[in-house]
Simulated scan of single mutants.
Amino acid sequence: MKIKKVLVTGGAGYIGSHTCVELLQEGYDVVCADNFVNSSPIAMDRVAQITGKTIPVHELDFCDYPAVKKFFTNETVDAVIHFAGHKAVGESVENPLKYYENNLLSLINLCKAMGKDIRKNLVFSSSATVYGFPDQLPIEEDSPVDSFNPYGRTKLFIEQILQDIWATDNAWNISILRYFNPVAAHPSGLIGEDPAGIPNNLMPYIAQVAIGRLERLRIFGADYDTPDGTGVRDFIHVVDLAKGHVAAMRKLETSPGLMVHNLGTGRGYSVLELVNTFAEVNNVQVPYEIVGRRPGDVAANYASTDKAKKELGWEAQCGIRQMVLDTWNWQSKNPNGYSFD
């Protein structure tokens, strides 16, 4: 089964836009669908600039089933990579219904529409948040799953939905990819992470402090049982992550059924290590202050990547210095993200 044409939902977003680049460079035909609530159409112009290829872009809300159904009536694709969804942990705690409605309904509508077609190939964007508080490190795919916030629960619920769909119809081929902590940007500096408002994630917060948009970084907790007392996380370069989706797409061509893989580097970096490396490599100041721990944060969290290496032939290539270099390249060239265009 040859996969040629791929729909990327949420394709104008941070991970989606980088995945579009990698798919195009591997020779796939790509179609983007996005509602642009948390993304910018400018990102797709930049994808075209990087690759020299213009792709069709559809403004589409996957919570609108008639619109989704109409899209699949008019557009035939061989596979779908599903990024569309809300992703801020803090916001999910404040507004859980928004997350349950949007993330679950968009996936259900997508699968309903795909189920009417013979090409049932899907890559789903999941998260390491499904592991909750891990009882062992590194975290393997068969580690216990749980979650302590609505965002993570939507990922868990969707994984269960996909398992149930596959159990009743083995014509589906489904890849569930559990990301750890995506960071950085395309080396061109043309696309990168452009969060709305105050960043929820560490690396864009560091970058915005360095560029002067924010006064200082707050580091939550310096008394963890880690080498320097700050939390340890598995940061993965977004380009490596995007290439992981290409590897999953190739694997779907072998009709593997349902599969689950971690996408991480297999090692952890502390918050202070990331901050200090960013400042050193880019020769910038990153003022910070230590504050109390946040509820729900774990001391350390990093992936076992053996399964992805064995089954997908994929492993991360970029280290922390490349991550901070590419982040600053993006931020310094786009101090206000896409909004200045």
Rank of each mutant, 00 (worst) to 15 (best):
K120I: 01
Q160G: 13
P182A: 14
T168V: 14
L97S: 15
T168P: 10
Q163V: 09
N301C: 12
Y100R: 06
F148D: 15
F220K: 11
R321D: 14
T19K: 07
V298A: 13
W314F: 05
K112C: 12
E253D: 04
S339H: 10
E22I: 00
A128R: 01
G221M: 11
G212P: 03
F36G: 13
Q285K: 15
E315I: 12
N103I: 03
P66C: 08
L258D: 06
E273C: 05
D64R: 04
D240P: 07
S106V: 06
I176P: 03
S188V: 03
V89R: 11
N173A: 02
H82W: 07
T305M: 07
D45N: 12
V275K: 01
D78W: 00
I139A: 05
D297I: 11
K333M: 07
G231Y: 12
Y179Q: 12
G231A: 13
D34Q: 10
L24H: 00
Q160W: 09
I290G: 08
Y338A: 00
N301I: 11
I165E: 05
G16I: 06
D234Q: 04
I139G: 00
D326S: 00
V209Q: 02
E140T: 14
R46I: 11
A300F: 04
T76Q: 15
T327C: 03
V183R: 03
